[in-house]
Simulated scan of single mutants.
Amino acid sequence: MSDIELVHNPALKRYEAHLDGQLAGFAEYMLADKLTVFTHTEVNPAFEGRGVGGAIARLGLDDVRDNGVNKVMALCPFIKVWIQKHPDYEPLVYGD
């Protein structure tokens, strides 16, 4: 199994995962004053079940945490549930 290559693509405002030279999935976001709003996450069906969605979520949330300025608003249901399953990320959530 190939390793997932993870990249932040600020030009498209999304975090991406690539597998076998193909875009396997992405999480889109919008920026507001001190807020990163995750709006949509999508995994190519050909790559489902290989940890792509979780890897993208972790990349995006780690990037926000490492930046140290923004809070997170998860409008995307996948990111919202992922945070609930990984409570160490809950301090990033706006309003918590």
Rank of each mutant, 00 (worst) to 15 (best):
residue 1 M to G: 14
residue 2 S to L: 03
residue 3 D to C: 02
residue 3 D to P: 00
residue 3 D to W: 07
residue 5 E to K: 13
residue 6 L to W: 12
residue 8 H to L: 10
residue 8 H to G: 00
residue 9 N to Q: 11
residue 10 P to D: 09
residue 10 P to L: 10
residue 10 P to F: 12
residue 10 P to S: 08
residue 11 A to K: 13
residue 12 L to Y: 08
residue 13 K to A: 14
residue 13 K to P: 00
residue 15 Y to V: 09
residue 16 E to T: 09
residue 16 E to N: 07
residue 16 E to H: 10
residue 16 E to Y: 11
residue 17 A to S: 06
residue 17 A to F: 10
residue 18 H to P: 00
residue 18 H to C: 01
residue 20 D to Q: 13
residue 22 Q to F: 02
residue 26 F to D: 03
residue 26 F to C: 06
residue 27 A to P: 04
residue 28 E to A: 15
residue 28 E to D: 15
residue 28 E to W: 01
residue 29 Y to T: 09
residue 29 Y to I: 09
residue 30 M to Q: 15
residue 30 M to L: 14
residue 31 L to W: 03
residue 32 A to H: 14
residue 32 A to N: 09
residue 34 K to V: 07
residue 35 L to S: 05
residue 37 V to F: 06
residue 39 T to W: 08
residue 42 E to W: 13
residue 44 N to Q: 11
residue 44 N to K: 04
residue 45 P to A: 06
residue 46 A to M: 09
residue 46 A to W: 03
residue 46 A to D: 15
residue 48 E to S: 09
residue 49 G to Q: 11
residue 50 R to H: 14
residue 51 G to H: 10
residue 55 A to F: 11
residue 57 A to F: 08
residue 57 A to V: 05
residue 57 A to L: 05
residue 58 R to L: 05
residue 58 R to H: 12
residue 59 L to G: 06
residue 60 G to C: 07
residue 62 D to W: 05
residue 63 D to P: 00
residue 65 R to H: 07
residue 67 N to M: 07
residue 67 N to F: 11
residue 68 G to A: 04
residue 71 K to S: 13
residue 73 M to L: 15
residue 73 M to H: 07
residue 74 A to R: 04
residue 79 I to N: 01
residue 80 K to N: 12
residue 80 K to L: 02
residue 81 V to Y: 03
residue 82 W to A: 01
residue 82 W to V: 01
residue 82 W to P: 00
residue 87 P to K: 01
residue 87 P to E: 04
residue 88 D to H: 09
residue 88 D to R: 00
residue 89 Y to T: 01
residue 89 Y to F: 15
residue 89 Y to R: 02
residue 89 Y to N: 02
residue 90 E to S: 12
residue 90 E to W: 00
residue 92 L to F: 11
residue 93 V to P: 01
residue 95 G to V: 04
residue 96 D to T: 08
residue 96 D to V: 11
